[in-house]
Amino acid sequence: MDRSVLLLNERNLKQRKIKNYLMILFCAISSIITIFPLVYIFFYTTGAGISAINLDFFINLPKPVGETGGGMLNAIVGTLILIGIGGLFGIPIGILAGIYVSEYSGSIMSNIVKFITDVLSGTPSIIIGIFAYGLIVLPMQRFSALAGGFALGILMIPTITRITEEMLKLVPHTLREASLALGISRWKTTLRIVLRTASSGIITGILLAIARASGETAPLLFTSFGNNFWSISLDQPIASIPVMIFNYAISPFDEWHRKAWAGAFVLITIVFLVNLIVRIVTKTKYKAG
C-alpha cells in the first residue's frame, strides 16, 4: 500500500501525532468526567448525611412532621428482615444454579439455565416487583414483608449464580479427578471439595448481592410497601431504608429531607464498605494464587 509513502510525508506525520495526542487527551478527560459525579455524589451525601445522623437515627422510630428527633429504627430492622428473607430464598437457589451451570456445563439444560440467569440479571427490578405482586400480594390481599423479601431474593439470584459459576471454574480440574479417583461420589465431590475450595469467592458474591439488594427500591414499593410504625411480622407491610428515603425525599418537609440524607449516607457507606472488602479479599487471593 501507499502507507509507507505517507509515512515519509513530514506534514502528514505531524498531523497524525497531533491527532494521537488529542485522542489520548480525550480518553484521560473522559476518565475525569466519569469520576467527577462519583466524588460529587459521595461528598454531597456524606456532607448532608453526617450533619443529620446521630444516635437517635439508629434507635428511635420516625416521628410525625413537626416534631424533632426520631429515627429510622423500623426501616433499618425492616431492611435487615427483607434481606434475611431474600437471602434465605435467593442464596441457596443462586448457589445451586451456579453449581449446575459450572459442573454440568455443556448440557442443553445448563445452557438454558445460564441464558435465563442472564435475562434475569438484565430485567428491570420493577418488573420483578410486579411479578412478586402478582404471585404473593394478590393472593394474600395485602402488602407484606414476605413479598418484598421474595422480590429481593429473585434479584440476588443472578449475581450469586454468576459468581458461583466463575469461582467453581477456577477450581482446578485435577482436584475433582483426584476426588473421583478415590471413589468419592460426584455430589460429595462437588459439595465437600469443589464448593469448599471456592467458598471465599462465593461469599464475596453473596456480599455483593446483599449490597445490591439493600439499595433496591423499585420492587419494594408495591410488595413490602413501607410502614411508619414498628412492625416485624412477616405478613404485614414493613418499612425499609430505600423506600423510606424515597418517601421522605419527595415530601416537602426539610426535616424529612435531612432524615433521608442520613439514610442515603448509611446506604452509601454499606455499598462502599462491601465493595472495598470484596476488592481487598479478591486481591490478596489473586496474589496468593
Binding site: 466519569t34 469520576i35 459525579p37 462519583l38 455524589i41 454531597y44 451525601t45 455483593l208 449490597a211 445490591r212 439493600s214 439499595g215 433496591e216 427500591t217 423499585a218 430505600p242 428515603i245 424515597f246 425525599a249 433521608a260 440524607w261 442515603a264 446506604l267 452509601i268 455499598v271 462502599f272 462491601v274 465493595n275 476488592r279
Partner: peptide, 17 residues
C-alpha cells in the same frame, strides 16, 4: 474501583442527588 462503586450506588441515591 471508582467505576465499580459508581455502578454499585443504589439508584435511589442518584435520584435523591
Amino acid at each position: 474501583f471508582m467505576v465499580e462503586i459508581l455502578a454499585a450506588i443504589p439508584s435511589i441515591i442518584y435520584g435523591f442527588w
